[in-house]
Amino acid sequence: MSWVKQVGWRHLVGITAVLFSLFPIVFVVSAALNPLGTLSSSELLPTGFTLRNFVDLFAEHAFVNWYGNSLLIAGLASAAAIFISMLAAYAFSRMRFRGRRVGLLSLLMIQMFPQFLAVVTIYLMFTTITDLWPAVGFNTAWGLILLYLGGALGVNTWLMKGFFDTVPKELDESATMDGASHAQAFFRIILPLVTPIIAVTGLLVFIATINEFLLANVFLTDTEAKTLSVGLYGLLGGESRNTNFGIFCAGSLLTAIPTVLVFQFLQRYIVSGLTAGSVKG
């Protein structure tokens, strides 16, 4: 009886949660392996085994392009976003200057205005940009990366600043006393100590970017320029919703791979980074 009270209920909750978590994923795997490849013939557990859906995905659609675009955009955008917000977090955490409080508050406010609400304006803006500089206009990775970087300062800076605050000030102060410049104090003293939060923010931005659908959908209309989210969404459009389901599920599984890899790679930082960043203390 005491086992039930001590440990048993924990297993019960754990198993229920795992079932809830896994049920749609098992369905995706089953549908991806389903020889018929339609929604109506896909069962929860696999009824057959074929790799045809995967083969079709590569043969009939520009999946390789989409994959490359997604990796390029998510990789570059998250790296650049981390760098930018890292710098800003350092300034907010370590320096006292006029407008600091206002700056922090406005960062919070501006990101509450969903960038998506301004989608009409963004569209008009990039129509002009495409006209002037096609290299960073519609249907280019560079333009979309720039657009994503507009939001880089938002939540990441707050998250990082919270973590930076936990690093004792004395460390960089003594480095400054020894003659280090502010840049050296940051890159050589602080940065090595805050890798957990850098890893976590990197993961969050990467996942958010690779999943981003709305702006990318407006931005990328050429088949070859699409990202995974836009391309896969197109597979289920109109009449093909039932017939392309297997291919879609195969694509979704392959899309999860980069995320899982990044996750594995950064795993040891994740739990400590997530909590310590949320609020100092």
Binding site: S85, I110, Q111, Q115, T121, I122, M125, G150, G151, A152
Partner: peptide
């Protein structure tokens, strides 16, 4: 960050 923020968020908003 501020320049990008102004160009792609503040101005559209």
């Amino acid at each position: 960050g501020t320049l990008l923020l102004i160009a792609f968020q503040v101005v559209p908003v």
